[in-house]
């Protein structure tokens, strides 16, 4: 058992994406993600998405997400500190809105 497995309360990589893909593909989609946390899920699907705008209110989590993004060379994700309340009513449209473990 790896250290990471012990220290995560979330599913292993891939499970959530397999569930999502039963309904829709994220390939080439413009994705809005609410509650992205440290980007754990975001950075799994970002390589196939067209673009991602991802919010989380926790600054430390967003900083971790941005670090992970840079480390993996992924450049199509805009991580922002905040909530969906910061999203203007008007603007570019998204194909998918993902509420990931956020209630």
């Amino acid at each position: 058992m790896s250290y990471d497995q012990v220290l995560s309360a979330y599913p292993r990589d891939g499970l959530e994406l397999r569930l999502i893909e039963r309904f829709t593909s994220l390939r080439n989609k413009r994705v809005l993600e609410i509650g992205c946390g440290d980007g754990r899920l975001t950075l799994q699907y970002a390589p196939v998405a067209s673009s991602v705008l991802a919010f989380d209110p926790d600054r430390a989590s967003i900083e971790e997400a941005a670090w992970q993004q840079a480390d993996r060379g992924i450049d199509n994700v805009d991580f922002r500190v905040g909530s969906i309340e910061q999203l203007a009513d008007r603007g570019a449209r998204f194909d998918v809105a993902l509420f990931s473990w956020s209630l």
């Binding site: 999502i20 309904f23 829709t24 999203l87 009513d89 449209r93 998204f94 194909d95 809105a97 509420f99």
Partner: peptide
Amino acid sequence: RLSPGGMLI
């Protein structure tokens, strides 16, 4: 902000 037919997950 979703396109018509867009998915909310």
